[in-house]
Design a binder for these strands. Sequence first.
DNA 1: CTTGATCTACGACTAACTTCGTAGACAATT
DNA 2: AATTGTCTACGAAGTTAGTCGTAGATCAAG
Lengths: 133, 133
Amino acid sequence: MENTAPLKPTETELEILQILWQHGPSTVRFVNEEQNKVKETGYTTTLKLLQIMFEKNLVSRDEESRSHVYRAAVTEDETQQRLLDRFLDTTFRGSAMKLVMQALGNHRTTPDELNQIRHLLKKLEDDSSNADS
Amino acid sequence: MENTAPLKPTETELEILQILWQHGPSTVRFVNEEQNKVKETGYTTTLKLLQIMFEKNLVSRDEESRSHVYRAAVTEDETQQRLLDRFLDTTFRGSAMKLVMQALGNHRTTPDELNQIRHLLKKLEDDSSNADS
DNA sequence: CTTGATCTACGACTAACTTCGTAGACAATT
DNA sequence: AATTGTCTACGAAGTTAGTCGTAGATCAAG
């Protein structure tokens, strides 16, 4: 077995990753307290999860002090991308278009955000104009 | 207990729903054959799944002929919307923007599709101008 | 040094999802 | 009427995710 193997996080694992991404390296206790803000969770439950995630190389940990400090071993962006690809496949049968339309259509988007998207569109358009470098 | 309760389909259930959405009402055998194009699946496995989905009211069935005919009891759109909402929450922490950006950024989108999105943006803009009603 | 708090490690239990084997009903065919 | 094939129903086993209890180590006081 090798490490450096990025897998698909489960629902709960993702919640924990979110916490680590938001707050940076954290102890089990901190992660657990954050989790409890959303949903009652026993301390050892959080611990176990983090240990499993450690096995899977989803997180790394610093064992210097008695209470280990865990940090995300995968970035938020790459994980989102991975999950998005999968989701696109299974739920929208690969049609990024349809997904975007539904996402934009059904969630109030601020004018500012709409502008950001417009900029992206512009950029995509330009990129496709002058094709390969 | 009541019926008319559309829940979150599991991974496999979603695959079956995709088949029903694509091909319309189908027998177990047909669904199973479609499934086998992607992944070897025993006949009774498919049958069982459809029966469970029937219990959950994800599909309805016509029992006239000996081989029942199943049809999706939830629409593709509403299911996609429901799953998208959930996905947006868990993976993108609610930021439709970020999701759209990633989706557009990492999947080649045709100029035509870009146009469609542009139209949608326009429409969203207009809608937000003249507020309610 | 004893008590109590906090930590890791680990095993076990539950619940949900998926898979499949087997049995019985029903029909078509020999 | 026996054989063969296809169907539904159902039960049971295997898998994975999530939960938590308990034991043992470590530390900080009293």
